[in-house]
Each structure stands twice: as structure tokens, then as C-alpha cells.
């Protein structure tokens, strides 16, 4: 078995070119899926028999919450790869993840509060799920703050990577918080081993939105990754070529 593909993923010029080529395709398909998901979620799906049209918040809340966890996991994995094998591109990818993850964690918290007010009667509760998600938001902010406070990129990469890797314990805590503790938040209805507990007409738009959000993350990661790679490269001839494109 050969590992040439793995080695190429450690090469800044190769990854830069790949990111540049793939980003528009990911962004374009994310946009199309978003439009389809919005149409399905806001227009085609019937109102919920208990929550009426208020349930439609799920089409932006659940995908935001999914991204908050998925992006953090990606960031921690990239940081670990960067730490263990000292791969610059991996550190660049981890750094590129943070602002994207932080913004969608904020969106998950705010959309959740806006759903909670009419359905639970409160915007906020110090509930296991809500509190652990808030901690995730602070982890992202801490990661970005730590990076911003260290001028030397290599040292910033290593220090922030340790924080990202340690913080990953929070990810399963968030996911299982509704099962482990008595939470106000409902149990998973899609991300579970058994069949989803939603009607198809409601579920399909949600799955489309999950895919759209994920592709949007990949597109934004690829754009930010190019910026992070350029920041880490000094006086290389390939940059001269890359800047012409």
C-alpha cells in the first residue's frame, strides 16, 4: 500500500491548488442545496401537529448545531495531525476551521433560544445540552484568542493545537448530554442508530439542509485554507505562480 496521497496532502502547493479548484464547486452546490432545503422546509413541509410552524426553526438550528460539532472535530483532528507529524498544512486547516465553527455555534445557540422561548417558555436554561454547547463556543473563542495572542505562527500553531485536542472531550459530552442527563432538550431524532423519528416530508428538507451546511463549511474551509497556507509560506517560487491564478 502506498501513502503518496497522504504525502501530497502535506504539500502546500498541491493543497493550495486543490483548494482553489474545489472551493467554487462546493460553494455552488451548497447554494443550490440551500435553496432546495429552504423551499422544502419553509413551504413544502407541513406544520407540526404540536409546534405548528414554530418547528421550522429546526431547519437552521439542527444543521448549525451539527456544524458546531463536526467543525470542532475536524479542527481537533487537523491539530492532532499537525502536532504529531509536524505538518504545516494540517495546522493551517485547523486554524481555518475556528472562525467557521465559532459562527455556527453562535447561530445554533441563538436559534435554539428562539425556539426555546415559545416551546419551553424560556430563552435559556442552565441545562446540560445548552451549557455544554456554550462551553464549545468559548472553546472556539479561546482557540482564536490564543492564536491571536502569539505572534510567531509556528508557536501559535502548536499552542492552539494542544487546546483544540484537549477540548475535543466536550464533543461527545454535548452529543450524549441529552441521554446521560435529564435534559430539557429533546433526544436526537435523526443522528441516531435506529430509524429517524420524523415524517419523510419533514425529514428530507432537513437532510438537504445538513448537506448544504456541510458543503458550505467545506467551501469556506478551502478558501480560508488558501489564506492560511500563504501566511505560512516564505519566499517560495510556487507562490509566485499561484498568485498569478
Amino acid at each position: 500500500m502506498t501513502f503518496t496521497w497522504f504525502h501530497r496532502l502535506g504539500s502546500p502547493p498541491y493543497v493550495y491548488g486543490l483548494a482553489q479548484r474545489l472551493a467554487p464547486w462546493c460553494a455552488g452546490s451548497a447554494l443550490l442545496l440551500l435553496l432546495a432545503g429552504l423551499w422544502g422546509g419553509l413551504v413544502l413541509a407541513p406544520p407540526d401537529y404540536q409546534q405548528g410552524d414554530g418547528f421550522r426553526i429546526i431547519y437552521v438550528h439542527a444543521p448549525s448545531a451539527w456544524l458546531s460539532l463536526m467543525v470542532y472535530t475536524t479542527m481537533a483532528l487537523a491539530a492532532a495531525v499537525g502536532l504529531i507529524w509536524r505538518i504545516k498544512v494540517a495546522h493551517a486547516a485547523a486554524a481555518a476551521c475556528a472562525p467557521i465553527g465559532a459562527s455556527f455555534t453562535a447561530a445554533a445557540l441563538v436559534t435554539g433560544a428562539l425556539w426555546g422561548r415559545p416551546m419551553w417558555g424560556t430563552y435559556w436554561q442552565w441545562d446540560p445540552r445548552l451549557t455544554s454547547e456554550l462551553i464549545l463556543f468559548f472553546l472556539y473563542l479561546g482557540y482564536m484568542g490564543l492564536r491571536a495572542s502569539i505572534e510567531d505562527t509556528q508557536r501559535a500553531d502548536r499552542a492552539s493545537a494542544v487546546l483544540a485536542v484537549v477540548g475535543v472531550v466536550n464533543v461527545p459530552v454535548i452529543h450524549y448530554s441529552v441521554t446521560w442527563w435529564n435534559s430539557l432538550h429533546q433526544a436526537p431524532s435523526v443522528m441516531r442508530l435506529a430509524k429517524p423519528t420524523m415524517a419523510t416530508s419533514m425529514l428530507v428538507p432537513l437532510l438537504i439542509m445538513l448537506l448544504a451546511f456541510t458543503l458550505f463549511f467545506v467551501a469556506m474551509l478551502l478558501v480560508r485554507l488558501q489564506a492560511e497556507i500563504l501566511r505560512r509560506e516564505r519566499a517560495s517560487t510556487w507562490i509566485r505562480e499561484a498568485l498569478k491564478r
Binding site: G54, R56, S64, F104, W115
Partner: peptide
């Protein structure tokens, strides 16, 4: 269905997250 005050701000906040990412990246 009477939930406009909660549904639309939720969609607006999410749109803001998309815009922030697009412009920022």
C-alpha cells in the same frame, strides 16, 4: 402560524452566519 417573531429572527441569524463566513473568508 403566529411564530413569525421566532422563526424569522432564527433564519436571519443563520443568514448572518453565512454572510459573515462568506465575507470573512
Amino acid at each position: 402560524g403566529g411564530y413569525a417573531a421566532f422563526v424569522w429572527p432564527a433564519y436571519a441569524v443563520t443568514a448572518a452566519a453565512f454572510l459573515y463566513n462568506w465575507v470573512g473568508a
